[in-house]
Amino acid sequence: MSPAPLDASLGKEQAAAPSPAIRLRALNLGDRTYASALVSFGGLLLAVAGVIVVSLAHLAQPTLSATGPVHFVLGTDWNPVSGSFGALPFIYGTLVTSAVAIVLAVPVGVGLAVFLAEMSPRALRRPVSFAVETLAGIPSVVYGLWGLFVLVPILRDPVEPFLAKYLGFLPLFRGPPIGLGFLAAGVVLAIMILPTIASVSLEVLKTVPAPLKEGALALGATRWEAVRIASLPFAKAGIFGAVLLGLGRALGETMAVTMVIGNSPSIHASLFAVGYSLPSVIANEFAEATTKLHTGALAGLGLVLLGLAVALNGLARLLVGRTQRKLA
């Protein structure tokens, strides 16, 4: 083992391989098997997504081709017996209830997040966060139960008569106070999406760099002014993302809405009126749907819902991600 012959062989080696820079990656059999097993798990997840889209489209296809996609989306008549399928009342109901939910939940959710992030005593943060998490963890059928037996009676009297009396000049607040309807669904949805909006906004607000806020405070700004001129502008896109995530959740929420919206396919301007939503009609009719056209129509509604949810979630992730990347 003297060094001399080693040098000689080294010379040979280098002559044979003029580019000595070898990429060193030797995978043995176990590692290679493992790597391909992992990749197939990743592929499985893609397959799940593919299966969801393909099987929905496949189920919906008979109805969509019989009705025509445009008429399906814009039609207002829904009659499984006569085979007439127009989804507009459901789309309308979904949009109206989600809008009510957003209008109610955004100020509360963002206000809560701002309070916790910027104003509250530290000791308050944990218990309130815990409460918000608890709110998020309650099953939607329990919200529906509560909505049906607690919220609806309160809306019927005194809330709706009160609104009709003072805001009745708006078409939104007219008609008999039934309790069930768009307003009830919107309020329950607002409560359900509140945790999403609050917690994501809070996450985003936490990423606001301290120097930014301190800069504003050092200029003599009050706490609220610092929030207004430093924190909120920085977190704007992320908070908007939080709202979209909440909206995505509201659109697809089924049970609580089904239990309080009244389940009647009609389009009314008044929030006091009963209506229907995309998920609700699927929930109510699917188990009893006997014809291919009927299940196809319901799957078509599912497809509409899927499209809305995917678009909203994609956009929301983009916006939340952008605020968080601002730091980098």
């Binding site: 099987s55 697809g252 089924t254 699927i282 699917f286 799957a299 819902l305 995917v310």
Partner: peptide, 23 residues
């Protein structure tokens, strides 16, 4: 795969129900 799983997490559960029904 990561993006797909994020999008999947936002798919309404009722839609998943239809898929499972079909499958």
């Amino acid at each position: 795969v990561r993006f797909t799983s994020e999008v999947l997490a936002g798919v309404p559960s009722i839609v998943i129900g239809i898929v499972a029904w079909g499958l």
